[in-house]
Each structure stands twice: as structure tokens, then as C-alpha cells.
Amino acid sequence: METNVVQVVNVAQAKSDGVQAFIMHHMQDSPVWAWTPSIHTTMPFGLTINAVMMLGVALLLIVCLGLAARNQDPVPTGLRNVLEFFAKYIRNEMVIPFLGEKDGRKMAPMFCTFFFFILVMNLAGLIPCFNTATANLSVTAALATVTLFFMVFGAIHKTGFIAFCKGFAPPGIPKPMLLMIVPIEVISMFIRIMALAIRLFANMLSGHLVIYSLLGMIVIFGFYALPALLGALGIYLLEVFVSFLQAYIFTLLSAIFIGERYHPAH
């Protein structure tokens, strides 16, 4: 009897370790794409799953948005209507309030690309067999450094180097205090960018981790854990919402950060 219990516990422990290994493997980027347990594809040119997902999403966006934009009906319908809604919202509500009318209109296309690129990468990861490219820190860090690029070089180009440096010294602060404040401001700029990257990465990663963990319970406990399917479904639906939310937050924060550097007086 005791031997049987120990055996069951050991099997469960072993399955748990296996599930953990499975989850960790699927969370990490890999050059091998596992379509089914038996069908694997090794990516060419040293690409990884996330790289292919990202390139696929980019291609999909170019095709879909390009086709939708060709529709020149005076009354927009379908995808064109959705695109116009998002483009207008991003430009008028997220970009112009922080970058001003002139810069906002000029940079709105880049923020629209930010939003749709991140959104579609987030949503693509919810399709079975596909991966979430934004659950890869390299991808989110690269996107965040685009924001950093505009915060530094865009601001220098717009305001000049002196004004850019003065932006780190809040007005009205006594000069001795600047020795402490300026480094903090400089560091905070980089910390914001790191937070931007990690926020998107962690949110997308955690959602998938929870879904995999709930499904892993079925592997470990068998039919007893079937209710976990409902939990996984709930988390899956929540992930759809989180995909939109994170794309929105990343775009909005990028606009805010760049706007702060473009208009340091504000």
C-alpha cells in the first residue's frame, strides 16, 4: 500500500517536472517550431519562432492594412472603418495631447505602427501552435529602445542639445541640488524605458504561463482537473483584453515619454 502511494506521488512529481519543463520550453524562444508532438520544423537562416512570428505579423499587417487602405469609399466599412477609428483615436487622443499638434500629426503613423504591431503580435500568440513574440524580452526591449531613440535623438533634433540637457534640470531647483537631481532624472529616463520593455514582456508572458499551468494540471491530475479548462478559457479571454490593453499602454507611455522630452517645459 505504502509502496503504491509513493509510486503515485513519484509519478505526479515526475509529471509536474515534465510539465514545468514543457512550459519553460514553450515560453523560451527556439529555432524549432513544434506544430504537433510529432511534427517539428526547424527555422531557416538561424531564425527563431519569435522572429518568424514577428516577421509574419509584419507581413500580415502590410497586406491587410494595405488592402484596407485601398478602399476609398466615402463611407468606410469593415476593416477600413476599424483602422480609421484606431488611427484617429491614437492620433487625436494619445499622441497629439502629449506631442502637440505639429509633432503629433507628424509622428502619429509611427505610433499607429507601434500599436498595431504590438497588438497583432500579442493576439497572434493566442492562436494554438503560435508563439507570442512580445513575450520575448529582446523584442520588447528593442521596441522600447525605439522610444528611447526618439526621447534622446528626436528631442536633441527638435530642441537642440543644450535644451535637451536642460530638460533634466527641473526649473526652480537650487543649483547644489542639481548635482543630485540631474543624475536621477537621467537614470529615471532609462528606468522608464526598461519598465516599458519589462511591462509588456511580463504581462504577455504571465498570461501564457497561467494558461499553460492550468492545462498542465490536467496532465498531472488527469480528469480530476478538468474544471481547470474553464479557468484556462477565462484566462484566455482575459488575455485578449490584456493584448489590447498592453498595446495601448505601450503606445500611450511612449507618446508621454517622447512628449516630455520634446516639450521639457511642460
Binding site: 515526475a14 515534465g18 510539465v19 514543457f22 520550453h25 524549432v32 504537433t36 508532438p37 517539428h40
Partner: peptide, 12 residues
């Protein structure tokens, strides 16, 4: 055997 089954189920 259990670890192998689960790992293979994941494809790797």
C-alpha cells in the same frame, strides 16, 4: 517514463 511522456507531448 513520465518525464519522457510529458516532454514528448510538448514536442521536444
Amino acid at each position: 517514463q513520465a518525464v519522457t511522456e510529458v516532454a514528448v507531448a510538448g514536442g521536444h
